[in-house]
Design a protein around this nucleic acid. Structure first.
Lengths: 234, 234
DNA sequence: ATACATGTTTCATTCAATGAAACAAGGAGG
DNA sequence: CCTCCTTGTTTCATTGAATGAAACATGTAT
């Protein structure tokens, strides 16, 4: 089952090890890390020692590894750097409260989308990735389609999404859910990412989703963001 | 000024680059990173590309690097893993409310101390590092002295601190502030880190600080922590 | 137009990374 | 109690990935 090809660079391998951790896999032992990464036990062990030394991982009493406090440190710097996060959190929370559905904000980083802010209206389901979590854009979903439309070369489909101003997905990632995603722009018109409202498909027909988008538009505008591109405005 | 000796391992060097960022140095450009780390420009550049690729750094429009969203991801896993943080936050907040001063909890990681929890009684001053932030232990302060006492080889001074059970600093890091730090232990007696109460020096004579420590002791004990080592008890 | 600072690419050399294997340390089960 | 199996750790000869000096590119200030 070790048919994975590990990256060639040492630093790449180290980052790969870090990236193996997720909310579903919070604690991993040497054997698992070696298997998942495709690295030799000895190699993984040496890399892990370095990561522990710098506090990016910590070794628990039972020998399992888990993310360490250094991540907290860098995360707080990241948050401070992107004053953006503190700006986006309040409107996301208000939208979530008003539409009583889960509201999220995603950016594209590489070929993944990363959740920078999220507010759960209901805590019921664990389907959602947490803040900071990423999923491949290839897995689809409303947010993925929207991020593609605004960050890939123009195609007829993408142009249609941009003209429409939103993208609705039903059961694309999970058959029970429906989502509407719309773009968010900085006040200077630059594209930021995708706001997504997600809930149970049975509760949300398209008309309802579009009305939610209008509510979200209003909240985001109040928070100083643009919800339609600056071009052609007026 | 490039008399720094970079670590030998590639992964070490990469982690070094990450560790150069701080709340005071949120954004660094290639030249600075190369100088601070002692690495060759070309070497640093290659490492940085890898770190950017994995989202641990991001390259801003002006070419400067800053921590990226991957840190957010791992940080959220770290928080979820260390149930510890959720345990320490409530008593820290209560202490802060009762003594009406800023209360923090620090752990030692490497030669720095990292703030894992903090509650500002007053929002007035921006002197304090944020949660997740680190400062070198060599910069001193009550927390640093206490962490040294419990994690370094025993010296007469450290033994005295441990016997006393607290450390008071006045103007050690900033002349206007005074702090009292005391150790925190897990219920099994293992050392965790330093609780610190900090405020304006003019408001806080030693007697007051010691009374604050008693209040903090009580709150921490109620939260299930030990405030005196298990050894020699009863 | 020139000088300077910073970032990027190239390439021959070398040293750090590698992984197989041996070793150590439990735990499970007969 | 002994044996087998799993997991973690150390060792060491071999190799290839990392290195850094230098050339090159780009941009900015003078």
């Amino acid at each position: 089952m070790t048919d994975i090809k590990p990256p060639s660079g040492v630093l790449d391998r180290g980052m790969l090890l870090l990236s193996l951790f997720s909310m579903e896999r919070k604690r991993l032992q040497l054997r698992e890390l070696a298997e998942l990464s495709g690295l030799d036990k000895a190699t993984a062990l040496r890399l892990l020692k370095v990561l522990v030394k710098w506090g990016f991982l910590e070794k628990n009493g039972d020998g399992a590894y888990s993310p360490g406090p250094a991540n907290l440190r860098l995360s707080s710097i990241f948050k401070a750097t992107s004053n953006f996060i503190s700006r986006i959190e309040p409107p996301v929370a208000r939208i979530s409260a008003r539409v009583e559905q889960t509201t999220s904000f995603f950016i594209r980083s590489g070929n993944e989308r990363t959740c920078l802010a999220r507010d759960h209206a209901y805590q019921d389901f664990r389907y959602f990735i947490d803040v900071g979590g990423s999923v491949s854009l290839d897995e689809g979903g409303a947010a993925a389609q929207l991020l593609f439309a605004y960050t890939e070369a123009e195609t007829p489909a993408y142009a249609a999404t941009k003209a429409r101003g939103y993208y609705i997905s039903r059961g694309e990632r999970n058959k029970h859910f429906a989502s509407i995603a719309f773009p968010l722009f900085e006040s200077d018109g630059s594209f930021l990412g995708a706001v997504t409202i997600t809930g149970m498909a049975v509760d949300l027909d398209n008309e309802t989703l579009i009305s939610f988008r209008d509510i979200a538009h209003a909240e985001m505008a109040m928070a100083g963001f643009e919800v339609i591109p600056d071009t052609g405005d007026e």
